[in-house]
Design a protein around this nucleic acid. Structure first.
Lengths: 243, 243
DNA sequence: GCAAAGACTGAACGCCGTGTAGTAACCTCG
DNA sequence: CGAGGTTACTACACGGCGTTCAGTCTTTGC
């Protein structure tokens, strides 16, 4: 009622914008990112396709907005996974992160494809859009994790000499501000962790593991435990988490 | 002249089929898999769009054919990389494979997207098409590698009890026929190796490393060397290969 | 030499994103 | 309150897309 500060028009506009995005996400959920069609959305809303141009300049702008929302959803899933684990053991935190990442990807395969695959026929993301910030936000989550594990893992990461110049300035700045004691090699480790999880997940989400393996979750879990072992993060309680 | 056994008609047909695929690959190289349009191909060939239906039943059939060709190209690149390395050291062979994989992906990003991403708006691969066989062929290359490394790497892979039931029957059969002495855990390792390389490559090809790191090759190389170390495959000559 | 088979055209259908002109509702300000 | 500008929306048009289909013209096999 008294949220004021917005005129009636602004409220309606925000509501319609939200509805457009919601319907688009719905169409994407069944049919993939390619099924996002301005005409179909408008049809479902009882409008004409042209009307959507009052809200999004182009179809790509809608995709960009959706991408931002999906990144937000993923970031929240990962961040809440971190909050749900007592920060005692770095290995537990890493495992929690890994499983949260996979759980999100498996539960939202189309959203995963939207941000990590070809979003849509000819779409290419804006150069400095929300995607870049969102990825740094995800990196920040991993960075906290690596920072926590670094005292134990550092010894296993010798042999590669990284400098801050190896990273894009914005990422380097983020890392050095958040964790001044961390060396560049820790940031590299962070990216490698990301890629390690991402590899199995892309293969699974895009169906390439379906022809190879019965239970992708088992392979993923095993790889994560191998990761923890080779990082020098002992696993005190070796209980198998839910699969 | 005397290749006989094909009628003139069959020769022309084969030639036209090849031309269609060649043009399609060309369009894909600039513009991505989504730029493959029957009408555009026909236009470039001086034909009508409908004519292509004499050669491919649907657009998806063309995509499937292209996919098979691209898999063939990747398989040949990887297999020739194996032939180019003396089979002495498993670590060298793994490194050669890893670098051949990345070199192919970076040189053919659109082809990479075609087989590992969303090939095209609404395309979904046939259930038991050439893709499945091609993936097994790629697995076979990795399997040979793992088989060669297994004596040294086995000790580092304890802790996970795999059975042959964990894999799809066709892959299990392939592994047991080719390398009867190899345990299931070796096949799992093979898939994990694949995923390990794939993770960094997908991120790079889809532009997600661009915002993070200056030189993806360095990160990739470092990760591969870490992989070799944690596999227990010593690297006698620690020379840095070309980056 | 003739009939079957195949390659190809041209037009159509129904999708799609994107513009543009016009209309009606709404908000602001005097 | 009421004029003027802003905004949401429709209707229509354009070109591109995959796909189908009836018809034409060429090649093939008997």
């Amino acid at each position: 009622m008294a949220e004021a500060t917005q005129s009636r028009r602004e409220r309606l506009r925000a509501e319609t914008t939200r509805e457009i995005k919601a319907i688009a996400l719905g169409h994407m959920a069944d049919g993939g990112p390619a099924a996002i069609s301005l005409r179909a959305i408008a049809r479902e809303m009882g409008m004409t396709a042209g009307a959507i141009y009052s809200y999004f300049g182009k179809r790509d702008d809608l995709i960009t907005a959706l991408t931002a929302d999906v990144y937000e959803s993923l970031a929240q899933a990962l961040e809440s996974a971190h909050r749900g684990v007592p920060p005692a053991d770095p290995a537990d935190r890493l495992l929690a992160h890994a499983h949260a990442y996979r759980a999100w990807a498996v539960a939202h395969p189309q959203e995963f494809r939207l941000i990590y695959g070809d979003p849509v026929p000819g779409y290419l993301p804006p150069e400095a859009g929300p995607a870049q910030e969102a990825e740094h936000r995800l990196c920040a989550v991993l960075l906290a994790l690596v920072a926590h594990a670094w005292p134990r893992a550092a010894g296993f990461q010798e042999g590669c000499d990284y400098t801050w110049d190896d990273f894009q300035p914005s990422l380097a700045a983020l890392a050095r501000e958040s964790f001044p004691d961390l060396p560049p090699a820790a940031v590299a480790l962070c990216l490698r962790l990301w890629a390690r999880m991402h590899g199995l997940l892309t293969l699974e989400v895009y169906g390439h593991l379906r022809h190879q393996v019965a239970d992708p979750a088992k392979l993923y879990d095993a790889d994560m435990r191998d990761l923890i072992r080779t990082l020098g993060l002992a696993t005190p309680k070796d209980t198998v988490t839910a699969v």
